[in-house]
Design a protein around this nucleic acid. Sequence first.
DNA 1: GCGGAGTTCTTTTTT
DNA 2: AGAACTCCGC
Length: 684
Amino acid sequence: MSENFLSTLNESQQKASQHIDGPLLILAGAGSGKTKTITTRLAYLISIGIDPASILTLTFTNKAAAEMRERAFKLINPNLINTPPLLCTFHKFGLLFLKMHMHELNRKNNFIIIDTDDKKRIIKNIDKDLTTALVVNEISKFKNNIFSVEDIKDAAQSKLDKQIADVYEKYEIYLLKNNLVDFDDLLLLPYLILKQNDELSKVISQKYLYIMVDEYQDTNELQYKLLQKLCCSHNNLCVVGDDDQSIYGWRGATIKNILNFTEHYENVVVVKLEENYRSTDTILDHANQLIEHNRDRLGKSLRGTRFKGDSVKLYESHDENEETRKLVNDIRKLLIAGESASDIAILFRVNALSRSLEEGFNKAGIPYKLIGGMKFYERAEIKDLIAYFRIITNPNDNFSFKRIVNKPKRGIGKTTLDKLEAKSIETKIPIFNLIESYEDDELITIVGKKNTKTLKTFVESISKLRDVMEDSKIVFLDAFEDTFDYRSSYDSVPDGEDRKANIDEFSGYIRDYFKQNPHLNLEDFLNEISLESEQDKMFNESISMMSIHASKGLEYKHLFCIGLEEGFFPIIGDGSNIEEERRLGYVAFTRAMDNLTLSFVHSRFYKGKRTSLTKSRFLSESGLIKGSLKIERTSAFRNGDVVVHKIFGMGRVEKSSRAGKEYKLTINFGGSKRDILSSFVEKK
DNA sequence: GCGGAGTTCTTTTTT
DNA sequence: AGAACTCCGC
């Protein structure tokens, strides 16, 4: 059967997918059939008799993992599989690993995964004066570079460094105390475990004899080291990536991993996939021109395999409203012409730009799906529910306790919580257990009579629910609402209906989860969802809007990218990196299959004020505008518009009619009327 | 402890 | 512009 599924691959793809032992680097340009190649390799390895359970494939997103799983399984003869190959995100792998081996660090494996929001709260609690966002980032960087608290304390020079080191230390203590792990820990802790235990490293690497990594250009130092451990006894590591699409430098990804892969491992086989099957030659040409302005790259250029195609369309607008109108018009035309909405997408560098788009598309009645944005699990009401469930599975979780002890309102405020927390720190007993185990009289001396009663009742309810859950997870869910009236607490508050709808969706989801996985418990559910993001669902009936980051790996027949202005795209200044911005441009351009439209405006309303803008350097770098500005005007010339002609100067449009791609205009130049084509004048 | 009024920060990107 | 946070009077 192997010949059968290999036959649809080109020569390089075949070479890559039939590689068996030793390190392999697949440099796969955008649209070059990367996923096809690695899923085929997965199928190939199985077809030649390798145990599927010994193949590990790691991705960055759930979406990528799901897509690969689906495509690989289509190729594999199900009779060959007893245990399916493990194909998941890095973080999911870390989670599975920690569930098995957390005890190596003398920690229990009933830890809770915290998200960025939780992390922020914890850090804010530790130090109010520092910019939390900064510290959150710094700590992430420390962990991604495997710097321990001691390393950072030793290296701290300035006062600020020391302050950050101090927060890092307290943060780590807090996590340990509450048995919490953050996203970075899901990679760091497995690495630390493997590092201190060579025996285990060997065992693990013998379990996963063939390892594949997708989007290798986005790995960080920690992931590099972790992979090294995972394949320490065989080096059968196949990485796939495109240095030109490395766009996660800001969260610690280092392009060096892919640039130096051939030095990191011995006898690396390199296969380049340079044939693009996605975009028209025109689109590729501009994408190539743009990326050629970068220095840090391995150097490859994508060859088109399709046809020349339409030229890239450029829109210039006065402001975001005019920009939106043009997009609405175009997209409406596409839809009327019978194009499927799922073939159309609008991209932006900065999420904030979606606002005017949403407004415009709502008004026009064109359904759209905003990908990314506010995530379901980040909504306050959902996070509250999750906090409740966490407390139920793990009473040690002071963090979640504090979140929900007063939701709905029970009269427990900050003062009471501070007292409880102080006591908890003093006695080293978690707040929950403290309330549970202390006699009433004792508790009254700490928080007063009224609060004591409230807290005792609250804690008893939680314990009771915990017992119910042991019996039946479904009964538990009903009992939960009866006990706390959480949902009904939103009864007559503004946007309460929306929140209740979210709560209903969440409870529906969790019920379904238990129905489908009767052997799994609440804890499994909680860990599962903390790694989930919204992006899996594809809405076929609506056009998509998303950030360029979110668009990675996707393709659209008709692609629009807005906000090509200096400062918005590329973002310039402090933390930004122009080469990475350019790679983002490259990613954006190469999402387009048939048509690409780029748009820039003269001014935008942003962060509460209107700023004037100049067009992005990427337009000239990609060869879309040369020296003088030449812009295709599809925006209509209307009677009364003021225009400028190189020779005749300023005039006013008196008559306008369509003439192919442009307009035939009758213009009144201070009394003398002339018929002129629109390409000879500029709109004022 | 609560809620309203006032103030400050954000948004570059995300598992 | 909106969210998130702070302050203050009840």
